[in-house]
Amino acid sequence: MNNTRLLLKSRPDGRLGPEHFDLRDEQLGSLTDGKARVRVLYVSLDPAMRGWVSASTDSYLPPVPLGDTMRSLGVGVVEESKSDAYQVGDWVTGMTGWTKFLDVAPGDLSVVPQLASIEDYVGILGLPGATAWHGLVVEGQAKAGETLCVTGAAGSVGSLVGQIGKALGLRVIGIAGTQEKCDWLVDELGFDAALNYRTDDLSKGLKEFAPNGINLHFENVGGEPFNAALKNMAPFGRMIFCGFISVYNGEAKDTPPEMTAIVRKRLTLKGYVMTDHFDTFPAIFQELGKLMMAGKLRYRLDVTEGLENAPSVFNKLFDGTNKGKLAIKVSDL
């Protein structure tokens, strides 16, 4: 059996690209007792991966070693098994990496129920859904009647945060980077309002939408959208930090905002990463499944076929040209 992997060759200074990877074709040997062989179907492309390839060790995960398969989340199907933990035909999810096949031991990947389409386990029933629910409900303690602001609102996490917020009875304003995305948020996803950070006066728009201030803010971007939200927080508001995509490539400085609002308004600021909470995924997916069945969650995938295209496609996350959850289709189910 032939396998293809993408190995990290060098660390980027700026954007990640094909020049930072080696494409490796290799012949797989026999499966070892106690393991299962998984064929990868989709791999997820996420902003956090830019940090995983840096040399910095001051993060929640160590850097991907040079010469190793690029780290990523993915979903796959068990092709062969010599393990009681996996049966042939099982759907599995977890850290697959940029590879067509991988051999796993018990606990390496999680078996998921085949209750939805396999693509749903890249999005709503994958890391984006878990991140959105946990950040909003557990960390943010969202309450009906509150006003919620979401940056990166048309992205894989932000679009779900806003919809979950609406399902829980919050007023929701999203901040995105194009008018098409803003229209999608309001017309199709049910956000109450949306602002275009490239053309709108964010501080003015937030003030008009929330004259009494924002109760709960969900941050994905950093930069001016974050600064505008901070200026417009309500007293005792909460700010939940999921990411700062605007500075991941080193193309923009992480300029600190005017921080006195934190004291004046007695704000709570909290960051989180979902690698700390894998044990909560099953319970979260039960809740998201209920919302899906009730027709309260919509989602779109931006899928490119071919593992070899992953390095080129990755930067759509930073150009803002992706339309929905960015993923690579590695093989058919």
Rank of each mutant, 00 (worst) to 15 (best):
T4Y: 03
R5L: 07
R5T: 01
K9L: 09
K9N: 01
D13S: 14
G14Y: 06
R15I: 12
G17I: 10
G17R: 01
H20I: 11
F21K: 02
D25R: 09
E26Y: 12
D33I: 12
D33P: 00
D33Y: 10
R39E: 10
R39C: 02
V40Y: 05
V40W: 07
Y42P: 03
P47K: 00
M49F: 05
A55W: 08
S56C: 09
S59L: 13
S59I: 09
Y60G: 09
P63N: 09
P63T: 11
P63H: 08
P63K: 04
V64D: 03
L66W: 10
G67C: 12
G67M: 13
V77C: 14
E79Y: 10
K82W: 06
A85R: 02
V88E: 15
W91E: 10
L102W: 00
D103V: 01
V104A: 01
Q114N: 15
D120P: 00
Y121Q: 10
I124T: 07
L125G: 01
L127H: 00
A132S: 11
W133N: 08
H134E: 13
V137F: 03
E139T: 14
G140Q: 03
A142M: 09
A144R: 15
T147P: 05
T147M: 07
T151W: 07
I164P: 02
L168H: 04
L168V: 08
I173G: 03
I173A: 09
D183Q: 15
L189T: 02
G190V: 12
A193W: 02
S203N: 11
F209R: 02
P211C: 09
L216S: 05
E219V: 06
V221L: 04
G222W: 01
E224G: 05
F226T: 06
N232V: 03
M233T: 04
M233H: 04
P235L: 01
F236I: 00
R238T: 01
F244V: 00
P256L: 14
A261M: 12
K265C: 11
R266M: 13
T268V: 14
G271N: 10
D276P: 06
D276I: 00
L288Y: 04
L291H: 06
M292T: 13
R300A: 06
D302G: 04
V303S: 06
L307V: 07
L307I: 11
E308T: 11
F318A: 03
D319P: 00
K323A: 02
S331G: 15
